[in-house]
Design a protein around this nucleic acid. Structure first.
Lengths: 245, 245
DNA sequence: CGTAAAATTGATCTGTCTCAACGTGGGTGG
DNA sequence: CCACCCACGTTGAGACAGATCAATTTTACG
């Protein structure tokens, strides 16, 4: 498997990339660094020197409140990256850390700039950034207006579709190395309530989440219960992503 | 006053712009369209042909849930614009409407592209986009982890700082043409609870919000109560925005 | 094995919602 | 120019989703 293939997959789905554009990406991701779980990638106040590309494993962006509570703002799954324009501002004002051992490529700002000279890559990266924003909007709707049950279901649908896009699902299941506390920080629910909600989903035979592994028993019920519409995840129509069950 | 001066102000604060870069902006905003309150700028599914620049008045981005509830995702105050890269994807997947009569410039995608050829404008627009995202992140934290009182206070602080940056505050007050129901859709609170929270802020002599006008009596208490840190609104250090009281 | 982190479960508490009523002020048509 | 009206704001009472506190069990891992 090529270096950074999930990343190339991810961007290729947003616009078609020429062979040498793909080669540029491969080269850019050629020397990833290995991070352990819980390791910080960027802290508030750090200089925004790099764009981080998560080649495998899992990371997240988050913000901490003074009282210690945190809101997870985004998951970075295999193939995801931090905002490509981040280096335009001097400092991070949110934080990023690894949730599960990950290989991460650090792209210096001028490398990103060089990649964006290529029209295909510029379009892919621009669209990627828009999808990321659309995802954040959806999370705002989720946290703002959906019940615990809907929220949890919605997040599982989203992760499912995103992982499928990079080939990390098998049948209707996938690995998800998150604790219930981390899910709580994402969904703005207490860990206890996340647990009760997952138990309910299990009891209803919709989804089982155990041992860091999710099995979706009834995707259609899950999707409908969440009010999930995968549209926001792929700006290109004609994309055939979106599971059936 | 020049056409689009709030917009030029807004972008100029993000990086210094040459005289002819400013002239390009002025020219781009030269023929705004006038919209009435409640008028739609873009609906879900509309082709993403334009970037919308709100020269004065007020607009917002939002998403509707099937049950009719809505989440307001962002306010567009004077000088704000919709995402400059939006035209990279074919369709809107959220909606935008006017909240208070507004003059709005519609920039076709190739015009935006031409503006971004200028290095200063490219940097300003890129940073603008990052600030907008940082604001959305802060809203996610707000809705996810803060109490009604903190949330409301935080939003008022944010609007205050943003309006001050375009010269639309006077002493410690500003016009805010929002109903309590609209605030509720923003903060993910019921209109009733927004009312109670505003009454509480008034009772404590921190803020008065009446007749579409906000008076901040005690900024420091408001800021502290909200846990508000204006950092996220201006990526440039050295900017002296941020009221004292 | 032993131990610490994570998951599970129960009991209780509370912030916010919902429903319902009433007040109010600014715009409009007669 | 007044009277009506309707959207918006205000207030009260009761309900409920989810938080918090407190064990207890299970799992992962050195």
């Amino acid at each position: 498997m090529r270096a950074g293939s999930a990343w190339i997959d991810r961007l290729s789905r947003l616009t078609s990339l020429s062979v040498d554009e793909q080669a540029l990406l491969e080269q850019a991701a050629a020397a990833p660094r290995l991070y352990a779980a819980q390791e910080a990638l960027a802290k508030v106040g750090d200089p925004a020197d790099f764009v981080y590309v998560v080649l495998d494993g899992m990371a997240c962006e988050f913000k901490l409140l003074p009282d210690g509570r945190r809101q997870i703002l985004a998951y970075l799954l295999a193939g995801d990256m931090s905002d490509p324009r981040q280096p335009l501002v001097p400092h991070w004002n949110h934080a990023m850390c690894v949730l599960w051992p990950a290989r991460v490529a650090l792209l210096p700002r001028d490398l990103v700039h060089r990649l964006e000279q290529r029209p295909g890559l510029a379009r892919a990266i621009g669209r990627y950034s828009l999808v990321k924003q659309a995802t954040m909007r959806e999370w705002l709707v989720n946290v703002g207006h959906r019940t615990a049950f809907e929220r949890t279901s919605h997040l599982l649908c989203e992760i499912y579709v995103r992982l499928e896009a990079v080939g990390l699902t098998r049948d209707h299941s996938f690995d998800l190395p998150l604790t219930q506390a981390e899910l709580g920080d994402t969904l703005a629910l207490s860990a206890v309530h996340v647990n009760r909600t997952l138990m309910e989903l299990r009891r209803l035979k919709i989804v089982t989440f155990q041992n860091r592994h999710v099995v979706i028993h009834d995707y259609e019920t899950l999707r409908a219960g969440a009010g999930f519409d995968p549209q926001y995840l792929h700006p290109e129509p004609g994309s055939t992503i979106g599971p059936t069950n």
